[in-house]
């Protein structure tokens, strides 16, 4: 098991290297110039000479391979470089915002699972009943409604009925859970609703399959209560494919946050991403892509490990 984890961690290196090359090249291919935006952005008449000097200072005039080498060298030392716009270290720029975004993502996942597991199982226990149809319609709408639209509805509802909006100051949950939750539960709901729809549909269909399996009949033949048949026999098996979906959806969820954070005016990764893109802040963008790629790869690893815990037929070595 330890050997397997080490192997997987070693395999992260080529994956991340690939991501690094891709984002580095993509940013160089896209037109736009941070120096231009930074110095001439407000319409000031700055001479070409000054611009050239600034480019020199940021190292943008050097050959691509050299720039890439320098960035790689930094990555090896876990140094993501300095933002070309604010001149602050990228790790500092990302740090607090990543914290907020991960908070929202994890909360959204929890909200999603809390809704999806009972709802999906109920639909599977009474297939083709009125309840099942209601749940299927509900989850279908969850898939159809984009999370930013859901977010806007939540904000409107809060204003309409409570005439209140949370103050957008973020505190980590371990410092002040109440303040943290009052702020983040709303975006988590907006994102988690869609998440729950995806997972509930998956859980329903696998659960319907599992309930038809012979070992469920065996459990009943042993005189097991219906409740235990579901929780102890059907659920662990039905969760297997569901865990895979949860992992994939979690990765998507981080990408989806960009718009939702905008809607809720949260200063998270999403907002930073938009700013960095509009500034053509290459170093910051590269840093963010690397961080997100790492989160994704780690999520995958966690899902695979969780899978092996839930399924004794799979043993990694």
């Amino acid at each position: 098991m330890v050997a397997y984890v080490l192997k997987r961690l070693a395999l992260m290196i080529p994956t991340l290297l690939g991501a690094a090359v891709l984002i580095f090249l993509a940013l160089r291919v896209i037109p736009g110039d941070i120096v231009e935006v930074k110095l001439r952005g407000d319409g000031a008449a700055i001479s070409e000479e000054v611009l050239q000097k600034e480019r020199q200072r940021l190292g943008l005039d050097r050959p691509l391979i050299e720039q890439f080498g320098e960035w790689m060298g930094g990555l090896l030392r876990l140094d993501l470089g300095k933002s070309m716009w604010t001149e602050r270290p990228v790790s500092e720029e990302i740090g607090s915002r990543l914290n907020l975004s991960l908070h929202v993502a994890v909360l959204a996942m929890i909200v999603g699972l809390v809704i999806a597991i009972p709802v999906g199982s109920l639909a599977a226990l009474y297939p083709n009943s009125g309840l099942d149809y209601a749940i299927r319609i509900g989850t279908m709408s969850g898939l159809a409604i984009p999370s930013f639209w859901m977010g806007m509805l939540i904000i409107l509802a809060l204003l309409h009925w409570a005439n209140w909006l949370p103050t957008p100051t973020f505190v980590p949950i371990w410092q002040d859970p109440v303040a943290c939750l009052t702020l983040l539960i709303w975006p988590a709901l907006a994102v988690g609703f869609r998440f729950s729809a995806v997972v509930a549909r998956m859980l329903r269909s696998t659960m319907v399959e599992v309930l038809r399996e012979d070992y469920i009949r065996t459990a009943r033949a042993k005189g097991t209560t219906e409740r235990r048949v579901v929780t102890r026999h059907a659920m662990p098996n039905a969760m297997l494919p569901t865990v895979t979906v949860v992992g994939i959806e979690f990765a998507f969820l981080i990408g989806g946050l960009i718009i939702t954070e905008q809607v809720f005016n949260l200063n998270g990764l999403g907002k930073l991403f938009i700013e960095a893109t509009s500034h053509n802040d290459f170093v910051l963008l590269q840093g963010m892509v690397m961080v997100i790629a790492t989160v994704m790869v780690l999520t995958n690893l966690v899902v695979d490990l969780l899978y092996s815990v839930l399924n004794p037929r799979i043993r990694y070595s």
Binding site: E213, D214, Y215, T218, K222, G223, R232, P312
Partner: peptide
């Protein structure tokens, strides 16, 4: 009836692999 199943009448099925829960010991 639940008390009868497994308590007073035992059942043995075919396909022993499919009839045992794969994820429980």
């Amino acid at each position: 009836m639940r008390q009868v199943r497994g308590g007073e009448i035992g059942l043995v099925f075919q396909e022993p692999m499919a009839s045992l829960n794969p994820v429980r010991s």
